[in-house]
Design a protein around this nucleic acid. Structure first.
Ligand SMILES: [Mn+2]
Ligand SMILES: [Mn+2]
Length: 320
DNA sequence: GATGTGG
DNA sequence: CCACATCAACGCCAT
DNA sequence: ATGGCG
């Protein structure tokens, strides 16, 4: 007799508390989360393959939290990769999620968001760029869509094409396949350059300003998503009311889309006959050298942000 | 959710 | 045995 | 060791 109540066993994984709300304010049950993960497993797993996985877990009575280490007590059939974390001076044991039962196990842990790294473990090059569009708080979805168009235009001007998905939260993710592998440093530079070009095309609706106060209500083209950074995977739910899901769209669908239509309650029923994220990926294209030259000349934005933060803090302390 | 504590 | 507390992240890099 | 940000 196990002490805890097991509601169901799927793929050998014991699932618990399935009829409870997924987390405070979720508005859907933990069962809905598990059923969604099960329904999209075949589409989600390829995006997680060989990538150190971070998850956001959300439990009733607590704020959601990011988890990188595979916790002690996890089943030994979940593989991990060790990554040295410079900032904390320790080894992080990242899980790899390669099969349905691992996905279900995480779901039972109330892992709601799945954030793989942008490059597989051990890779030193990448075959794609990612453009992450983050609208300001409270902005309607049309605003991010409006910002996506100049990004697409900037890419087109360079002979590049992108697939697009909702982030599941408020923004959009664009993925640009490349015909040649690019060293990760170069991917950072190229991403900075694409974001800068797009912001220049539409300076009133998009910006690359890292400091929120400097964005002036514009959509943030986040030039830091490359290399070991993480991104919410396609078909991953998000820890928000109704558990909206990161959902791939065609460019034709984008303008009329509303991200609230894609949730753990609806996505399973929308998949039939739709192109998948892999199928929406355009043909790889060659990256022009000029993009690297441009990008290398753009400073890493976070550095400037750090100084600005220190300056403000000093000013505050002096004035007080 | 899992683990460790101490009553 | 149960009740309860505690935990579950990173990097960017100049100063 | 910090700072802002995702
Ligand atoms: Mn984003
Ligand atoms: Mn972002």
């Amino acid at each position: 007799m196990a002490r805890r109540q097991v509601d169901e066993v799927r793929d050998g994984v014991e699932l618990t508390s399935l009829d409870a709300e997924a987390f405070d304010g979720a508005g859907v049950t933990k069962r809905a989360l598990l059923d969604h993960l099960d329904a999209v497993a075949e589409l989600l797993l390829p995006a997680l393959a060989d990538r150190p996985l971070s998850v956001v877990r959300a439990r009733p009575g607590q704020a959601p939290f990011m988890q990188k280490n595979l916790p002690r007590g996890a089943p030994d059939w979940i593989p991990t990769v060790d990554v040295w974390a410079e900032s904390s001076q320790r080894t992080v044991h990242y899980p790899l999620c390669h099969d349905r039962r691992t996905l279900l196990w995480f779901g039972n842990q109330r892992a709601v968001e799945f954030h793989p790294t942008l490059v597989p473990h051990g890779a030193t090059t990448t075959g794609e760029l990612v453009i992450d569009l983050d609208p300001p708080d409270g902005a309607g979805f049309e605003r991010v869509v409006a910002a996506a168009h100049p990004v697409r235009a900037a890419l087109a001007e360079l002979g590049l094409a992108a697939a697009v998905k909702t982030s599941g939260a408020t923004g959009l993710h664009l993925v640009v396949p490349l015909s040649e592998q690019l060293p990760i440093d170069d991917a950072f530079a190229a991403t900075r350059a694409v974001c800068a070009r797009a912001a220049a095309l539409a300076p009133d609706i998009a910006t690359t300003a890292f400091i929120r106060d400097d964005r002036g209500g514009r959509v943030f083209l986040d030039p830091t998503r490359a290399g070991g950074a993480t991104l919410a995977a396609p078909y991953s739910p998000r820890a928000r009311p109704s558990l909206p899901v990161s959902f791939p769209l065609t460019w034709d669908e984008l303008d009329g889309a509303s991200p609230a239509d894609f949730t753990v309650g609806t996505v399973a029923g929308l998949l039939d006959g739709r192109p998948t994220w892999s199928e929406l990926r355009p043909a790889p294209a060659a990256l022009q050298e000029v993009l690297l030259t441009e990008g290398r000349a753009i400073p890493v934005p976070r550095v400037a942000a750090m100084h600005e933060g220190k300056r403000r803090k000093r000013a505050r302390e002096r004035g007080a």
